[in-house]
Structure formats: C-alpha cells, structure tokens
C-alpha cells in the first residue's frame, strides 16, 4: 500500500495474526482487511460495525443483492480491488456468475428484477454525480422499492463509497482470482466484523 505504516506498522500481535491467516488460508491477508487493523480505534473498529450492519444487518435486500450493490458502486468509482472482491462475493452469494457479470457489463439489459435495477441505477447516479433529484427517487419507489429498502441500499452505497475510495487512495493490491474467492468465502461466512 502507498503508506509504509499500512504495510509494516502493525502491532506484533497483529503481525502474528496476519501470518497465521496466511498459513491457514493459503492466501495473504487482503489489504482491505489489513487497513481496519491499523490503529483500529481511529477507523477500523467503527468502520467494521457500520459496514457489517449495512451488508449483513436485517434488510429486505438479500446478501447477494447488497454485495452486487457494493460491486456496482465500486465499478462507478473504478476501484479495481473492490469490484473484484464484491463481484466474487455476489457471484458466490447468488450462485449465479453470469447474472452478476451481466449487471456490471450493462445494467439496462441485465436479467434482474426491476426493483434491483432501479436501485442500482440510482446508486450509480448518486456515486457518479454526488446528487439525486426527488424524481430519481420517485422512479425507484415506483419500481416497487420500499422506503426502507432505499435507506438500506443507501447505507451499502455509503459503506462502499468509503472503502472503494480508500482502496484507490491507499492502493489496495489486486489479488489472484483464488485470493478473491477465498475472501468471498470468508465474507459470506463471517461478514465484515
């Protein structure tokens, strides 16, 4: 990563943990996971709580839907690490790789339900332009999305606008496909805490 402290500045117990994870999983600890271990009282502890709540807390959206939103928002931000990580996680959650790939290639023609398509469109616009009109939101609601679902989707969007920006800024290293698959398996089993 671009700051040396994020590569080497961890406490000895954290370094040991990273070594153990590498030994047991066969893959290096992803930079996104390392980041939340650096001075966790400043960012990591609360970031994990919020991200976990957004991604795994109660919601009418499935885990797959939320992982797809994370991948979609990351794609708008051109964050290579987050796109790959959450594409792999969405694919695994849905057990449907072609659908996830289709959404990321062309949302409008992808084989997804209208409520999800309208929501992704709205999150993409918000991420790219930084604003939304009430009409944009009415389009989402009239596609059959509830107010609670809009709020839940916004929380996912916020979590991944933060993480993808940090990934790009600090320069998260893009993993091998196997590394991303292992990460996806972990995120579906354990979440973000």
């Amino acid at each position: 990563m671009r700051l040396d402290i994020l590569n080497h500045g961890y406490r000895p117990t954290t370094k040991l943990l990273f070594t153990l994870i590498r030994l047991f999983s066969g893959h290096p600890v992803p930079d996104a996971a390392k980041l939340v271990f650096y001075r966790p009282d400043f960012y990591g502890a609360r970031a994990k709580e919020f991200t976990h709540e957004a991604m795994r807390g109660p919601s009418a959206w499935s885990v797959g839907d939320r992982e797809l939103m994370a991948a979609y928002v990351s794609k708008v931000n051109e964050s290579a690490f987050c796109v790959a990580a959450h594409t792999a996680t969405a694919r695994r959650a849905y057990q449907d790789g072609p659908m996830v790939a289709a959404v990321l290639a062309d949302l409008e023609s992808a084989p997804v339900e209208e409520p999800l398509r309208a929501t992704l469109r709205m999150l993409g616009k918000l991420t790219a332009e930084g604003k939304l009109s009430p009409e944009d939101m009415r389009d989402v609601l009239s596609a059959g999305v509830s107010r609670e679902q809009v709020k839940d989707a916004l929380a996912v969007c916020v979590a991944f606008n933060t993480t993808s920006r940090l990934g790009d800024a600090f320069g998260f290293e893009v993993l091998s496909p196997e590394g991303f698959e292992a990460g996806a398996q972990y995120l579906l089993k354990r979440g973000y805490r």
């Binding site: 700051l3 650096y38 918000l126 009409e135 929380a155 606008n161 920006r165």
Partner: peptide
C-alpha cells in the same frame, strides 16, 4: 495522511448519504 485520507473518504460518502436521504424525503 492516514487520518486525512480517511476523513476525505468518509466525508464524501457522508455527503452522498445526506443527498440520498434528502431526495428520498422530498420524493415521499
């Protein structure tokens, strides 16, 4: 820089949160 970059990322995201929630409130 670790802190300031985090503040910038969280700040931009917080503005998106506010903008999204405001549009929702207006729409409804």
């Amino acid at each position: 820089l670790f802190e300031l970059v985090i503040c910038a990322a969280v700040g931009q995201s917080a503005r998106l949160y506010e903008a999204g929630l405001a549009a929702l409130a207006e729409a409804t």
